[in-house]
């Protein structure tokens, strides 16, 4: 799959919360095929203190409308500069990067997509693709408070949604791994993206219940292309680049349960 570097144009910047923007981007040419779990290296033009691009996962690829969606969490000057782009502005992007989630699965599979914080972003795209393939996805989404749950309606249009919040302001109180759905139902496949402690807990649950699990990692990156070897994760095959060999890994390959 060829990678491109291109100035994409902002169609809309929707402020989802005080710290999250949804950027809908388009191109004058046809966007290339993309797989859920892949990401974009975005140039943070105008950032005062940062220098490197910011890796941001693909929230949705809408081929019909030739749109690429990025859900940006504002955590520093780089992401702040990216999230400040308005309709008509250009955003320099390298994409699509990395390997995506496994979507070629039996349609009868019971799949659970577990996301935390801005880690829910690639799961919307994944859920849509699974749904198109005849798989009925369930989502388990964790957030600090009810206000921090991102794109809830979009997820609800795609599958069953279960929520946990740390303060109990929506869904069940606690972390995603505390949700009763994990005890009440059984799954054949789990996909997860979010903070590392959350993903490790989800991977551990999957491991103990002999469920296949894929996690999307977000180690600090420089190049995004597998050249600098900065974003490595220890695996059964040695140090692998999250940007090129991931960001999605089968959790059995990671040294998390050791």
């Amino acid at each position: 799959m060829n990678k491109a570097v291109e100035n994409l144009v902002v169609v809309e910047n929707r402020r989802l919360t005080a710290h999250h923007s949804l950027l809908r981007l388009t191109s004058s040419t046809s966007l290339p095929p993309m797989i859920p779990g892949q990401f974009v290296e975005v140039l943070a033009d105008g950032s005062t203190s940062t220098f490197l691009r910011r890796p941001i996962s693909i929230n949705l690829f809408d081929a019909d409308n030739n749109e690429l969606w990025l859900l940006v969490a504002i955590v520093g000057d780089g992401t702040k500069a990216i999230a400040s782009k308005e309709k008509g502005d250009k955003l320099n992007c390298i994409f699509p990067l990395g390997n995506g989630f496994s979507i070629d699965i039996n349609p009868a599979s019971r799949v659970l997509l577990v996301g935390g914080g801005v880690g829910v972003a690639p799961l919307l795209f994944l859920g849509r693709r699974l749904s198109e393939a005849g798989v009925a996805p369930s989502f388990l989404l964790g957030a600090r408070t009810a206000d921090d749950i991102l794109e809830r309606e979009m997820f609800e249009q795609t599958g069953k949604v279960y929520i946990t919040t740390e303060d109990g302001s929506a869904g069940q109180r606690g972390f995603v791994t505390n949700h009763t759905i994990l005890a009440d139902e059984s799954f054949d496949m789990i996909y997860t993206c979010g903070p590392n402690p959350m993903m490790k807990a989800v991977a551990s649950y999957a491991y103990n219940n002999k469920i296949r699990c894929e996690a999307s990692l977000e180690n600090l990156m420089a190049c995004g292309l597998g050249a600098c070897l900065c974003c490595v994760e220890k695996t059964v095959d040695g140090n692998l680049c999250v940007c090129k060999d991931g960001p999605v890994f089968d959790t059995r390959k990671l040294l998390w349960n050791k």
């Binding site: 220098f51 490197l52 180690n219 600090l220 420089a222 600098c228 070897l229 900065c230 974003c231 994760e233």
Partner: peptide, 14 residues
């Protein structure tokens, strides 16, 4: 090579 983290962004550099 060395353990992660292997990179830190700094002012106008890394």
């Amino acid at each position: 090579g060395n353990d992660y983290p292997r990179m830190a962004e700094t002012a106008q550099g890394m």
